[in-house]
């Protein structure tokens, strides 16, 4: 299963990005082969609709779960339609690696 984690950089040491629509990178963690891959968020600076664009991106990345700091109402309603589970983490000290390690233990 693919799980998307919003990230502020494109490596495992990067900090977790608390923003969903305007995060800098999307880290895709594949829970079957335990690999990660990073995709840049090309919509992070658009005027409006960043949340819906990111929701679509997460769906295109084939995710079933997405981990971020919070989700705006428009993004939330789309992710619900896509049947993608939203997980809110309120801790901006975490690195992407910390979160991936926790997922590996599941």
């Amino acid at each position: 299963m693919n799980i998307v984690i919003t990230a502020s950089g494109n490596s495992l040491e990067s900090k977790f990005d608390m923003r969903f629509g305007r995060c800098t990178w999307f880290c895709v963690y594949n829970s079957v082969d335990k690999t990660t891959e990073f995709f840049e968020n090309e919509n992070k600076n658009i005027n409006g609709g960043a949340g819906t664009k990111s929701a679509a991106k997460v769906a295109e990345l084939g995710a079933k779960r997405v981990i971020s700091g919070d989700f705006g109402p428009k993004a939330k309603s789309l992710l619900e339609k896509f049947n993608i589970q939203m997980i809110v983490l309120d801790d901006d000290d975490l690195s992407v690696e910390n979160i991936v390690d926790n997922l590996k233990e599941l």
Binding site: N43, N47, K53, A55, E60, F82
Partner: peptide, 11 residues
């Protein structure tokens, strides 16, 4: 940015 298209979900 008001249109959302997701080809793999036919959305």
């Amino acid at each position: 940015n008001s249109i959302t298209i997701v080809p793999n979900l036919k959305f």
